[in-house]
Structures are given as C-alpha cells and as structure tokens.
Nucleic acid binder design. Structure first.
Length: 931
RNA sequence: GCUGGAGUGGCGGAAUUGGUAUACGCGCUAGUUUUAGGAACUAGUGCCGCAAGGCUUGAGGGUUCGAGUCCCUCCUCCAGCACCA
C-alpha cells in the first residue's frame, strides 16, 4: 500500500495535462459548446491569497463536469491590469506599469496552475497589451461615431493627496478610500458614454437571462426605471412654464408648491424679476460650492429659498402656488424640478413643516382586511371614535363578544345625521357616556373587511374623531344594543397597538401621537371631480386632465470614461484617430509623478502630445487622459473567442460559435457597474451587427468572499493573508480545492479556518486507501453510489458544492465499512469526485489500469429504480412528538400501517388507554396520532 | 431611512420546501495502534437530568394533526443603495 503523496501526484498530472493540452478549447467542433467564465483577476503585487481561487475552483467544477458530459468547453483566463492600483504603484515606485504587470501576472499564473484549474492557457489576454487595447480604443471610436461618446463638464471627486479623480464608489464618507484624505469637488471635462440610451433595454432584457434573483434586482434598482408623468406648470403673468416629473400625478391636487434644483435653467430666466434675487443668487452659489457628498450627507436637513413675487399655477385646481429652490431636488433626475405634495411625500412634508408651507391632504388611506371572496361589498358611511378617560391616560375600547375583535367605538351614519352627531349617538348607545369634548377630527379612512356578525363584506368610509371625556357620568345601557354585543374596556397607550383589530383605527391612534405621511395609494379627496376615486386607477385620467404626458425615467446616469484615441485640433475640433493608426500606444514615461492640475502625467511629454490633425494636417494635441480600467473589462470575454486576431476584436465566426457566455460567475461587488456596462457594450456591438446575441451572459451567479480567521477582510495591510502556496505544499491542491468548496455555501462570505482543512484531507486519505479494497466483477454498495451520483450531479448544477461533497463523504464512510468495493462502483465514485479533486482522481483512475485520462471520460448516470428503497423507516408521532419508529415496506397499504402503529408497544404506553381521535399518515414518512 | 439576505450545537454549516431538527466536517471525550507526525483507526458527543423524562432552530404571539420552514409584532447582524419625486 502506497502512501498518498500529493506533491508527487499533483506535479505529475499537471505536467501531463499541460503537455497533452486536454483543457484547450477547440474553435468549432461537433460537440455542443459550453463557455464558462470567471471575472479575470487584477494581478496585484501581493500575489494570490486563498480567497482568489474560490470562484475559479467553483467554475472549474462546472467546466470539468461539462467536459465529462460531452461539451466542448471554453474556460479562459486573462489579466485585467489597467487602473488605479497599477497607476498608484507606478507612481510610488516610478516603475513602468507594464513591467510590473508582467511580473505580477507571472506569479499569479504559477499559483493558479498549481491548483490544477482547467483553464485554457492558450487564450490568455492582457488588457494592457497594445494588441488588446487597440480594440478597446476601436470600440470606443464606434461609440464616438454613433454619438454615444461625448465630452461633458461634470463634477468629479478629487483627492488632493493622490492627485487623482475618484469614482463615487471610491469615496467613503467623504474621504478618499485609499488614503483617507478629504475629497474635493472639481469640475472636469470628461468623456461620457451614453448608457442611458440603453436603459430601457438593459432593464427589459433582464427577463431573457438566467441571473440569480438578487443580481437582477440590484441591476433593476441601479437602472431605476420609474413610470410617471411630465406636467407643465404655468408661471403667473408669463408665458414661461416649468416642467416637473412625478410618479404620483394622482396627488397633484395636493401640490402646494414647486421646487427647482439650484441648477435649474429657470434661474437664468429669472434674473432680477424676483423680489429677493440677491438671496437666491447666494443660495445657488453656495449649493454649487457644496460637494455632492455634502449635499446628500448633511443629515438631510433641507434648506431652500422662495422665489418671491413669482407664482406658478397648479393645473389641476388653478390655484396659485409658490416656487422655491432647494438643493434636495437633484438637477440630473427627471426635469430637475418637482411639484411638492407635502401631505403624501416625506421629503416635501419635512420641507413644508420647516418653512410653514401649506399641507393639503388628497389621499385617504384604504385598509383591506380579510373578506369573503365573491361576496359583494356593502358601502357604508361610518364613524370611529377614540375616547380618552376623564382622569387617567386610558382609552375606551370595545371587546366584542361574538367575534374576536377589539375596536374603538364605531357605527354607521344614518341619513340626515352629521358624522359628529352619529358619533355622539353611537357612544351613548354603546357605552353610556355622555359628556364628551370633541378635541380633534382626524383624516378620513376607508376600509374593506368581512363583518362576521352581519355576515357581509363591508366597504366602510370612516370619519374619525378624538373625544375627551369630561367626567364619568353614564346612562344605563340598553341591554341589546350595548352590553350584549361587547364589553367596555380601558386600554393603556402601550396596549392599544397590540390589541386593537382594525388597521385603520391603529393608524388613527398613531396619527394622534405623531405625524405620519401617508405615501401609499388610497381614495382621492379634495381632488375635484376625481374625489372618491381609487388613486391608482385615476392616475392616467388625471395626467390627461392637467395636460401632462406619461413618461418613464431612469436613475441610471451616463458615466465618465476617458479614452485615448482622439486628437484635439483647433480647426476641426475633436477628431478620432484613424483606425489604421490604432492602437495609440502610451509612451515610455520616466517620471510618473502626477500633476497638480489633474492632468495626466502624459501631458508633460510634448513629443507625444503634439501631433498632426488627421483631417487638416494642422498642429493638434492628443487626448492625454487614460482609459478607465472598466473599459477593457467590458468586452474581454469576446476576445477569448479569438485572442490573437489582428484584423478585428474577434472573428464573427468565432463569436457566433462561442457566444453567449453560458455561465458567468463573479463577485457581488460587480453585479451593478461591471455587469451593466458590459451588457451595454455588448448591446451596442449587437446593434452594429458585430456580435450575434443581444445579451452577453446567459447565466450569472455570485461567489462570497473568503475572510481571514477573525472574519475580517484578507489584505496585506492587515497582515492576515493566507497564501495558497503554503496550503498546497502541506495538504495538496486537491485538499485545498475540496476545502474551499466544502467550507460553506458558495455565494456566502465565509471565514477561513486553518483547523477545519484537515477534514477534507482525511477524506482524501480514505478515498486513497479504498483503491486497495477494489474487487473486479463484484458488486457492493450499489445503490449507495446511485444515490451519491444523483445528489452530486444535481447539487453541482445549483452550486451547492458543500452538500455535494458531503454526499461524497457519506458514500466513503458507508463504503469504507465493507471489506471490498467493486471496481465499477469505485470508478463511478472517482468520476464524480474528479471535478473537485482532479489529481487524486486521475492517479487512482490510472492505477486501476486506465490508459486515458479520467477527465476525458464520461459523467456517470444513475438508475432511479436502484435508488428507491425497498424498506423505509417511518416515525410514529403522538400529537406531533416522535415516540417510536417502525420499518415498513415502501408504499405499503395505509390501513395496515395505521393498524401496526396503533398496536405498537411504545405507542400504547404513551396513549395510556386514551383513544386516538385522528390518525394522519404521510406516505413513507410518518404517522401522527392525535389524542 | 429604504431594499435585499441572514439569525439553527463549542465552531463552519445540513434539512427533499409544512412531515423523524442538528446531515457532513471541525473540535471535544474515551479507547486501540504506530514508522512518534501538524498522525491514523474505533466508539461517543444538542441542552438539562443519576434516571424515567423534559427542553431545544434570535424573542413573543398566531395558523396547523404537525412549524427551522407559513402569517403578525419585535430585536440583532451582514450587504447594497442613500433626498431618484
């Protein structure tokens, strides 16, 4: 019996596989293709830590399984090397980023190879390679041609220490993510890509792909589609109009003022027309000075200034309403102006409260409780009354006798009766109390419910009152009307919310304690001819009524990116670099020091910057800003299909064969920006007829981070990095792979444990020693392997690698008990183990006499008939508690089992003479005896 | 604040979706054995209790013959978004 020598085995097979190129994808094949993809790594100087390979191993398991299932698999890798860290590193060391990148990727490659990941190394791409970024630039020129790339002056976050622009994500709490310096706001010309033009498609087409639900959700949130309307508000005494965007046109009768963002174009028209133009100008100027962060982070205290002497006209009710400017209205969303409905919007409410603006209720809440399906609704006008005790902080409620309700006093309004009179009448009848002071009338509410006593569905319209009792004087209550139906109880404030049944009354109570802004749909009120209608249903009619237009708006904004391949000419303006001159290569720069102005270090290299205009041949300058790193990573998966092509970014035939990516796994942190941007690029290329599918990725999943043992992020600066090299040396790549897949759910973050890794190693030891128990032509533990094959096959597809491995372990534990194992069964086992532990599986496979690699074999099938157990254990429960177990033949007769159960000794003991009320049988699972 | 996810032994985590809670692994306890290593093997291991037995899935209520799973209220943690009208 040989020892399990992982070092020898792993080295040997890695060399062999590489020599025979068994993982190289073939362009075009009779086999069906399968394209599995991981996010390509950023090769930092720190080398790999154990967190990096988790997704690679996960997709490796999928890819290896697909090969065994007969697919022609493309599983490529490359290096994403542009971007801030490289630049920062270069700045620090003064070294050429390309040399640094090369060195780093060499380390990464060696480390990844030592794990036995089945990447096709012949298709490696580098985003820093001119042969690659030539095509990034080329795609950019296509954007330019179609008008989807444009230059705009936008505010950027500027770190004065690093002298570098930061993306919003790189600003944490107003400080630079890297160095902690407080970030400034700077205006800078930036290249923008018009992703917003694709917003609708990016949203809709999510229906056509198989992404994890959370991923779709966060993409949808990021795109932020919302349906609403644009409505013009006329300015009194002027032909000017202000256009607002709203998702709640149904609340327009409650719009009591307008708010414009300080950047709004109306401001320039205004000039000195308003009575307080100086104040306004000051406010606009101060808002401009604030950074985006200040504007949104100032604990959301709202400030604003009224445009005095100017009024707008609410098109719904023709009322004159004031106009304000305030920086809580964002310039770049909707029209940069809103109609404020303080009664039904929290932000408007806070603002209105602060500045004493009118608050007009136009939506009355509707509460829908349980009702009988199919029964018509009987409409009733009703009252509800909160009544305070005359001397204590207690409130009157009725505890109903026939139904399990606790309510405030309620009752119908008779014809000709005022609501207040109805309330007083009802209170007297039901409680006998006489001396009430009407303290407050609360807003109306509506409620749909089933009236258990009257046996009908009710649609009640409530007028709500708050009374205070002046004293305890009472009259005798009529037996029938009062006491027979309910008892009067007094509730303390903290009991009310817990005990009260009707939601509407709970709301009344809460409203009495504090302001509540009702923002949901309901019944319209104070809304002219629309009063009484369902707010949701009336939306469209109201838009028509006020002359508005339905409109869909997106949160998504165009994003800045800085391309290289353009030239600025004084005569011709922005001129694209001719395609034949691509790529525009970066010059070798000796000094990578950044400049104070925010210009690229390239700007100092006159020789490179000064060039000729391709159009007029006059003197011109090159764009000196460099591409953001997401540009290169937006299309890299296309390059893998044809990585060496010098005529196009990839040949159409290759693209047609390999795309779309069948399964793309990546980090949670990329589910919005990267994923959205690459979808956008892909759709653009699709529109140009350059790729053959409208979506790049058929399926997308995420993996969780691996954290350090304390649960902290792993990083060199924290000094808690676990290097896979050490693990591979001591336990072997197979153990590491197995452990990473076994440690917990794949999509969840999880802390590394140096202790727990021994488990998978022991498992492999047992797998190893099993080979010495193999018997040919004998069958053992047959149905166990069938079960294991089924479970493993299914779990891998759902990325439930942890339970798949658990099934493998259970098999080995079981099979290990018998003296022998049949070769057939053992081989099946090795095949389903092979995606997780490819080296040991290969070694044993060959030891068993195979000449060809296990990884070129076939994935085993299982026989459903063998899995079905002949006998099953079922539980005997009494009142839901397990008291005994019995063995029965699978699918045996129900009555017979029940008889056996009732005759069971343990059952009889627990029954203790009592007879069974009911016996429930769940097929092949349990019997529950109710006593 | 909003949205999404989660809370199960000493620890990482299972649970065919309403049907025997704690699979698998780590750790721990006892034993066996050895080429003395960061070992291997065998048995045991949710909690309380000597036991019979009782109790257990963040807390509290509810529905059900039966709830980790469904409903309501609340608490805690993680992630993303953050005035998007």
């Amino acid at each position: 019996m040989r020892e399990y020598d992982h070092k020898k085995i792993e080295k040997k097979w890695q060399t062999d596989w590489e020599k025979k190129r068994i993982y190289q994808a073939k362009d075009f094949s009779k086999k069906p293709k399968y394209y599995s993809l991981i996010e390509f790594p950023y090769p930092s100087g720190d080398g790999l830590h154990v967190g990096h390979p988790r997704p690679y191993i996960g997709m490796d398991v999928i890819s290896r399984k697909r090969r065994l299932e007969g697919y022609n698999v493309l599983y490529p890798i490359g290096w994403d090397a542009f971007g801030l860290p490289t630049e920062n590193y270069a700045i620090k060391t003064g070294k050429d980023p390309r040399i640094v990148t090369k060195k780093n990727s060499d380390t990464f490659r060696r480390q990844i190879k030592s794990l036995g990941i089945s990447f096709d190394w012949s298709r490696e791409v580098y985003t820093t390679d001119p042969k690659y970024y030539k095509w990034t630039q080329w795609i950019f020129l296509q954007f330019l041609k179609k008008g989807l790339a444009y230059k705009a002056k936008i505010a950027i976050n500027w770190c004065p220490k690093d002298k570098i622009g930061l993306a919003n994500e790189e600003v944490v709490g107003g400080n630079c993510e890297r160095c902690g310096t407080s970030v400034e706001k700077r205006e800078k010309e930036q290249w923008m890509l018009g992703i917003t033009k694709y917003a609708d498609r990016l949203d809709k087409d999510l229906d056509t792909v198989d992404y994890l639900p959370q991923i779709k959700l966060s993409q949808r949130n990021w795109i932020g589609r919302s349906e609403g309307a644009e409505i013009d508000f006329e300015i009194k005494g002027s032909d000017k109009k202000i256009k607002v965007f709203t998702t709640r046109p149904d609340t327009i009768f409650g719009a009591t003022y307008l708010v414009l963002s300080p950047e709004h174009a109306f401001m320039s028209f205004l000039d000195d027309r308003s009575l307080n133009s100086k104040e306004i100008k000051e406010y606009v100027a101060s808002a401009r000075k604030k950074t985006e962060i200040e504007r949104t982070n100032d604990e959301k205290v709202k400030t604003g200034v009224e445009l005095k002497g100017i009024k707008a006209i609410n098109p719904a009710n023709k009322e004159k309403i004031p106009i304000w400017i305030a920086d809580y209205v964002l310039p770049h969303y909707g029209t940069g102006a809103i109609m404020a409905v303080p009664a039904h919007d929290e932000r408007d409410f806070a603002f209105a409260k602060k500045y004493g603006l009118e608050i007009k209720n136009v939506i009355e809440p509707i509460f829908i409780a349980k009702f009988e399906e199919g029964l018509p609704f009987v409409e009733r006008n009703a009252i509800s009354a909160i009544i305070k005790h005359w001397s204590e902080d207690k409130y009157l409620a009725l505890k109903w006798k026939t139904v399990p309700w606790v309510t405030f006093v309620t009752g119908g309004i008779e014809k000709g009766q005022t609501p207040e009179a109805a309330a007083r009448h009802e209170i007297r009848e039901e409680t006998g109390f006489l001396n009430l002071k009407l303290t407050k009338t609360l807003p109306n509410t509506h409620s749909k419910f089933y009236h258990g006593q009257k046996k009908e569905n009710r649609f009640a319209h409530f007028t709500n009152f708050y009374f205070e009792l002046e004293n305890g004087e009472q009259v005798e209550i009529d037996e029938l009307e009062g006491k027979a139906k309910h008892d009067v109880i007094w509730l303390k404030p903290d009991e009310i919310e817990k005990l009260l049944t009707p939601e509407g009354q709970i709301r009344d109570w809460k409203l009495l304690q504090k302001d509540i802004v009702y923002m949901s749909d309901g019944i319209l009120a104070n809304s002219g001819k629309f009063s009484g209608q369902d707010s949701q249903k009336a939306k469209k009619e109201i838009i028509k009524f006020v002359g508005g237009k339905e409109k869909i708006t997106f949160k998504l904004r165009d994003w800045g990116g800085e391309p290289i391949p353009v030239i600025f000419c004084n005569k011709c303006g922005i001129v694209p670099v001719p395609e034949k001159d691509l790529p525009v290569e970066l010059p070798k720069v000796k000094n990578y020091q950044p400049t104070d102005s925010g210009e690229s270090p390239l700007a100092n290299i006159a020789k490179w910057v000064n060039t000729k205009c391709p159009k007029c041949k006059g003197p011109a300058k090159r764009e000196t800003d460099t591409m953001p790193n997401w540009a290169g990573s937006s299309w890299y998966y296309l390059r893998y299909t044809d990585p060496k092509n010098s005529k196009a970014f990839a040949d159409k035939k290759n693209l047609k064969y390999w795309t779309p990516v069948d399964w793309y796994n990546g980090g949670h942190e990329h589910t919005t920006l990267h994923l959205l941007y690459s979808r956008f690029w892909h759709k653009f290329l699709f529109d140009l007829g350059l790729v053959s599918t409208s979506e790049p990725y058929k399926k997308r999943t995420s993996h969780g981070l691996i954290l350090a043992e304390g649960g902290e992020k792993m990083s060199k600066s924290r000094g808690n990095v676990i290097n896979p090299d050490d693990i591979v040396k001591r336990y072997g790549a197979d153990t590491l792979r197995l452990y990473e897949m076994f440690m917990g759910p794949f999509d969840q973050a999880i802390a590394w444990s140096e202790e727990a890794i021994i488990g998978p190693r022991r498992f492999l030891e047992r797998v190893w020693s099993m080979q010495y128990k193999v018997q040919k032509n004998k069958k053992y533990t047959e149905f166990e392997i069938e079960k294991t094959v089924k479970k493993t096959t299914e779990d891998i597809e759902e990325m439930k690698f942890n339970t798949a491995i658990s099934a493998l372990m259970i098999f080995v534990n079981e099979a290990g008990k018998s003296e022998f194992i049949s070769q057939e069964v053992y081989e099946k086992f090795l095949l389903i183990l092979s995606p997780f532990a490819p080296h040991i599986a290969e070694e044993i496979w060959r030891n068993l006499g195979h000449k060809k690699s296990i990884h070129l074999s076939d994935w085993p099938k299982w026989d459903e008939n063998l899995i079905r157990d002949e006998e099953v254990t079922i539980a005997l429960q009494i009142n839901g508690k397990v008291r005994a177990e019995i063995m029965i033949k699978a699918d045996s007769d129900e009555e017979e089992i029940k008889k056996r159960a009732l005759a069971n000794e343990a059952v009889l003991r627990y029954l203790a003479g009592e007879s069974a009320k009911k016996v429930i049988y769940v097929k092949n699972r349990l019997i529950n005896i109710v006593v």
